[in-house]
Nucleic acid binder design. Structure first.
Lengths: 117, 117
DNA sequence: CCGTATCCCCGCTGATACTG
DNA sequence: CAGTATCAGCGGGGATACGG
């Protein structure tokens, strides 16, 4: 039988660029990574240690995507034990207000639920 | 007048409640739905028409989840042609700053890419 | 008009083992 | 230390058909 080909749905014209930003910060671990990097640059293992539960694979995956999105810069220190530092780019810094806003409302959501909404 | 908010103390080693909020606005269509409802209440068909490409299934699914999250209220008008109106709750309104911040940075991401990033 | 039910693809994510 | 490779599972999301 013929392999059923998924209908190619054309991208819906986004009225507002919400998808643009959420495709950047929308992953499971991504916002946490950005949040930690927004404080200061960190090395791979530091991030892995700061974010309990994340696997090396996912951390790599997310960092690579963030690099591709131009929000994170990867800097290799050619020391004898190799060390790689990640930091937010200028563009990445612009995500901070959005992250902060999300954190803020996130707190209220938790409070609301704690109150037995 | 708003009651004075809790002091923003720095978060303990606990992770920031990004997931709390992103689990609410993190769906593919969810932010758009919230965005449109933040302007004014809309009916089911209006939303479906305003958001090109969304299926009834997803619209229902997202609206039900937003209801469960307490950010959207469903109001049935018992008219002869049945009509259902959705609107943001008070809690839902609190998401607007986050949405706005995301929209804002979303614009910059688009601009940045348009510049031949 | 306002949904529900079903099927199915595919990308995200985890676990584990391996490399420079 | 900083990753890569591979297998496997789950759940989001789309298409279609049907119900109130």
């Amino acid at each position: 039988m013929l392999p059923r080909r998924k209908n190619q749905v054309e991208e819906p014209p986004e009225q507002c660029p919400l998808g643009e930003c959420l495709s950047v910060i929308g992953g499971t671990w991504t916002p946490n990574i950005i949040w930690y990097l927004s404080e200061h640059p960190r090395r791979f293992s530091e991030l892995k240690d700061d974010i309990p539960g994340i696997s090396a694979k996912m951390l790599t995956s997310r960092l690579r995507k963030l690099e591709a999105d131009g929000v994170v810069e990867r800097r290799v220190e050619p020391t004898s034990p190799p060390s790689v530092e990640y930091r937010l780019t200028d563009l990445g810094q612009e995500l901070k207000p959005a992250i902060d806003a999300i954190v803020s409302v996130g707190h209220r959501l938790k409070e609301r639920r704690a109150e037995g909404d």
